Amino acid sequence: MRALQIAATGMSAQQTRVEVISNNLANMSTTGYNARRAEFADLFYQQQTRPGTLSSSDGTMIPAGVQLGLGVRPAAVSVQLSQGTLSRTGGDLDLAIDGYGYLEVTMPSGVSGYTRDGGLKRSADGEIVTSDGYTVVPGITIPTDASSVAINNDGEVYAYFTNQVQPQLLGQLTLAGFTNEKGLQAIGSNLFIETEASGPPQVSTPGADGLGTVRQGYLEESSVDAVREITELIKAQRGYEMNAKVITAADEMLGATVQIR
């Protein structure tokens, strides 16, 4: 009986949906996190009678036919691209991207990573790095005797010194954009890497070429809507239970068939 296999694919799909929801809820306090959504597609169909074929009895055309579906499969887990609320922190190296774009960082392997987590730090050498110690491109070093740091909306980094009136320009932060943001590969630690699906990065200064600006002293909160996720969780639970009932019903029907003498 195909119903058993079909319902099993439905239960597996709802389980995948719950796993995505649980990851969203686990990251509802993660800086710069965008919620994910599980997407599904129906499986192949068995064409017992194709639409448009001629009836063998009287030669008329069959308008609909008999097409039996074989269940559901996961199609994608896509990122819901929406900016989270900008929360004021007051930190000199806390940056929020107001709009489109990613900060570029250099990982230990030499590969470029991209992130919207602007909770930056200063390394032992004074270099601006991420919380994991990855250098933020283009590699700006803050002098040890700098009394404070200012970063304007265009990404220019200035250092102030106690014995100088005018600040010193240390460098220019850049942002990277992608033709298909959803094609980026998430690797954890709030980092993404480019893929063939995302296309190459288009790097420019903040505020140029459609990129957003940077806001010093702010961090972007997670875009997860807890109420929506709980609603989706209830729907997934109900869907799982209904598919389980189909399996129970199909099993009882098979049992009745076996008992026929």
Rank of each mutant, 00 (worst) to 15 (best):
Asp92Gly: 09
Glu221Met: 08
Gln216Thr: 02
Gly212Asp: 02
Asp117Cys: 06
Pro74Lys: 09
Ser204Trp: 02
Ser147Pro: 01
Asp42Asn: 11
Tyr134Met: 11
Tyr100Asn: 14
Thr144Ser: 15
Gln216Cys: 08
Gly183Tyr: 00
Ala150Glu: 11
Thr174Phe: 02
Leu70Val: 07
Val77Asn: 13
Thr60Met: 14
Leu81Met: 14
Thr106Lys: 13
Ser22Lys: 00
Gly139Cys: 04
Val157His: 01
Leu169Thr: 09
Tyr45Asn: 13
Thr135Lys: 13
Tyr100Trp: 05
Tyr218Lys: 01
Ile230Pro: 01
Ala186Trp: 00
Ala186Val: 04
Glu252Ala: 11
Asp58Gly: 11
Gly183Arg: 02
Glu241Asn: 10
Ala249Ile: 09
Tyr45Asp: 10
Gly110Ile: 08
Ile128Arg: 03
Asn243Pro: 04
Ser29Cys: 00
Gln216Asn: 09
Ala226Glu: 06
Tyr102Lys: 05
Ile62Phe: 02
Ala8Leu: 12
Ile234His: 05
Tyr100Met: 11
Ser29Ile: 03
Leu170Pro: 03
Met242Glu: 14
Asp58His: 09
Ser82Leu: 10
Asn180Ala: 12
Val20Ala: 06
Tyr33Lys: 07
Ser56Gly: 15
Leu233Asn: 00
Glu241Ile: 08
Ala236Pro: 02
Ala8Ile: 08
Ala244Ile: 00
Phe178Gly: 07
Gly212Tyr: 03
Phe161Glu: 05
Val105His: 05
Asp94Pro: 03
Ile234Leu: 14
Gly255Tyr: 03
Val72Thr: 15
Lys182His: 05
Leu184Trp: 01
Tyr218Arg: 02
Tyr114Lys: 02
Ser12Glu: 13
Val136Glu: 05
Thr174Asn: 13
Arg37Ser: 07
Ser22Trp: 00
Phe192Gly: 04
Ser87Lys: 13
Glu221Val: 00
Ile140Lys: 06
Gly212Ile: 01
Pro201Gln: 01
Tyr134Lys: 07
Ala197Arg: 12
Thr31Tyr: 02
Tyr240Lys: 10
Arg50Lys: 12
Asn24Pro: 03
Thr248Ala: 13
Gly133Ala: 10
Leu173Ser: 08
Ser78Val: 14
Gly90Ala: 07
Ser78Leu: 09
Ile193His: 00
Met1Val: 13
Ala236Tyr: 02
Leu173Lys: 06
Ala226Met: 12
Pro206Asp: 08
Ala7Leu: 05
Asp58Pro: 01
Gly183Trp: 03
Val77Ile: 14
Ala197Pro: 04
Asp132Lys: 04
Val246Trp: 01
Arg2Thr: 08
Gly126Leu: 09
Thr248His: 08
Leu169Tyr: 04
Val66Asn: 09
Gly90Pro: 03
Ser12Ile: 14
Lys245Pro: 06
Ile234Asp: 05
Leu70Ser: 15
Met11Gly: 09
Val165Ser: 14
Leu93Val: 05
Ala76Met: 09
Ala124His: 06
Tyr45Phe: 12
Ser55Thr: 13
Gln166Asp: 10
Gln185Trp: 04
Leu175Asn: 09
Val18Pro: 00
Tyr45Ile: 07
Val214Ile: 05
Leu95Arg: 00
Ala249Gln: 09
Ile193Arg: 04
Pro108Ile: 05
Thr89Arg: 08
Val105Gly: 05
Leu70Asp: 08
Ser82His: 10
Leu120Pro: 00
Lys235Asp: 10
